[in-house]
Structures are given as C-alpha cells and as structure tokens.
C-alpha cells in the first residue's frame, strides 16, 4: 500500500507527464490502497526564484507520498526527497501519467540512486 505521485501537466491519469519535478504544474497522486487518484497543485513552486525543488519535496512529504515518478529531479530536490524517505523514479517523459504508473507497476522503472539533473 502506497501513494505514488507523478509530476503532471494536468489533474488526471490521461494528463501528460510534466518532466520537471520542482517546477511541475502539479502531481497526480495514485493511492494503491483504494486505486483512487487525487491532484496536488504545485503552481506556487513554479514562480519561486530558487528552492522550487525543496518546496515541492515538502509538499510531497506533507501529502504522505512514498514514491515520486518524474522526468528530472535536481540535486537539492533529490536530497530533500531522500530526507523525507520518498523513493524516486526519474527519466519519465513523453507519456501520460497513467502510462507512467503502468510502467512503474510493471516493474519497468528502477528507483534512482542519484539525481539526473
């Protein structure tokens, strides 16, 4: 049972993945306990001069997210997510959040050990 957050350009599983983590428009959160999805708006982080990755990681921790799927995760964001005990899958882009979730659940996406940005 876990909550998986996918950085997203829109609110649902048909929305495209937003490859940016810190400055993602929002996150589609899939709860494996009841297969319910919810949406976390991340607009506030998009206009931060610096620290968007940290602010976004804080938002993930607050929502009790356990796994993040995204395209690019910067070093500070990576460090913050690790501190929060959240696992990270990166290099995801060019697909819907639903597809990303499907690939993750099929075991196609490894957990990252270092930031890729």
């Amino acid at each position: 049972m876990s909550k998986i957050a996918i950085s997203s350009e829109g609110p649902g599983l048909t929305s495209m993945v937003d490859p940016r983590f810190g400055r993602a428009g929002g996150f589609v959160v899939f709860d494996t306990a009841n297969s319910a999805t919810s949406y976390i708006d991340n607009g506030a982080s998009q206009v931060l001069g610096q620290g968007a990755g940290i602010a976004t990681a804080e938002r993930m921790a607050e929502a009790n997210v356990e796994i993040v799927l995204s395209g690019y995760v910067g070093p500070k964001a990576f460090q913050a997510l690790q501190a929060a005990g959240i696992k990270i899958c990166q290099n995801i882009d060019g697909m819907t959040t639903g597809d990303a979730l499907h690939h993750f659940q099929a075991g196609n996406v490894p957990f990252a050990e270092a930031p890729n940005k």
Partner: peptide, 18 residues
C-alpha cells in the same frame, strides 16, 4: 525567508545553499 529549512516527514532538513 529563503527556504533553507524544510520539514520533510517528521524531521527538519537544512539546505545551506539557500
């Protein structure tokens, strides 16, 4: 005011670069 501290889960983390 510069995001050098974040509450991540139960712990406070420090980001000295900020």
């Amino acid at each position: 005011r510069f995001m050098a501290f974040a509450k991540l889960g139960k712990t406070i983390s420090l980001f000295p670069e900020m």
